[in-house]
């Protein structure tokens, strides 16, 4: 089984987001592999451990995106590819999906393209479905477990209403949720392998595609207004009195 797993470098989840001059600013937060993508790598590795095969980690971005790829290599991925091109700046989700689909085709013989359920910076969560649309493959979203995989794949989808078991032919794309299982730590041997890895760099011309035209552009970015929070300690002679005062305040505030 040949799996392409897509990983992205994002600001740490503890980062504070602000808008400066109309541009998003994450401060000096460290950049880390998108936490959801770690689940995707875990799923890919678990599948190849059970069914054999290889995992190719892929990232779109600048030189620093290698950090995310090295994390995936240290976790146990067989290979990594960085897609980097000045023309990638300003790409929208649909354009990125076209690039990712082209990567899958260039890697060749991919049975499964695996994604985290979303990335914590842009958070649109559509990559798996959009890449499937470009490739003409089935898309399996919110996968919590793989029951079997061969010529077809049977997965459990995790939804708010419960679980759904679906079967699909391969090749397919798949987005993974954290129910799949806690991602493994990079192993020490993996860390060494990753530090020595020469990661190939593919440009759009290597992929044989034109620069996708962005259909969606960002006209404005706004930081949400700060919430003013005040604290008030309710006093009273008895618990009943305190509770009654609290209930009155909750009703007065319109909470109930």
């Amino acid at each position: 089984m040949k799996i392409a797993v897509f990983v992205k470098l994002v600001p740490d989840s503890a980062a504070t987001f602000t808008v400066d001059n109309g541009q998003p600013n994450w401060g000096d937060a460290p950049l880390v592999i998108n936490p959801w993508d770690e689940y995707a790598v875990e799923a890919a590795l678990a599948l190849t451990e059970e069914h054999g095969g290889e995992v190719v980690a892929v990232s779109l971005g600048g030189e620093n995106a290698k950090e995310a790829l090295k994390h995936a290599l240290a976790m146990g991925s067989s290979e990594a590819v960085l897609v980097s091109d000045d023309a990638l700046a300003g790409l929208d989700a649909a354009g990125a999906a076209r690039v990712m689909a082209a990567v899958v085709q260039k890697i060749g013989d991919v049975d499964l393209a695996v994604f985290g359920k979303s990335s914590i910076d842009s958070d649109h969560g559509m990559s798996s479905a959009m890449v499937a649309r470009v490739l003409g493959w089935p898309s399996l979203s919110l996968v919590a477990a793989v029951q079997s995989a061969g010529d077809t794949i049977t997965v459990e989808r995790s939804m708010e209403e419960g679980r759904q078991v679906v079967e699909s032919p391969l090749p397919a794309t798949m987005s993974v949720v954290k129910d799949f299982g806690e991602p493994r730590y990079p192993s020490f041997m993996g860390i060494r392998k990753a530090s020595k890895a020469e990661i190939p760099l593919w440009s759009l011309s290597d992929l044989g595609i034109e620069v996708p035209t962005a259909a969606v552009t960002r006209s404005e970015i706004m930081a949400p207004p700060k919430r003013e929070v005040t604290n008030e300690i309710i006093k009273g002679g008895s618990p009943e009195e305190i509770a009654a005062t609290l209930a009155d305040k909750i009703i007065a505030e319109g909470v109930l």
């Binding site: 090295k70 240290a74 806690e182 730590y185 990079p186 020490f188 860390i191 060494r192 530090s195």
Partner: peptide, 19 residues
């Protein structure tokens, strides 16, 4: 510190923070 050193440091830090 080398790239390996930093990765080792992070891996152990992740382990202690999670477990």
């Amino acid at each position: 510190l080398s790239e390996e050193h930093l990765a080792v440091q992070k891996m152990v830090r992740d382990y202690t923070h999670k477990e």
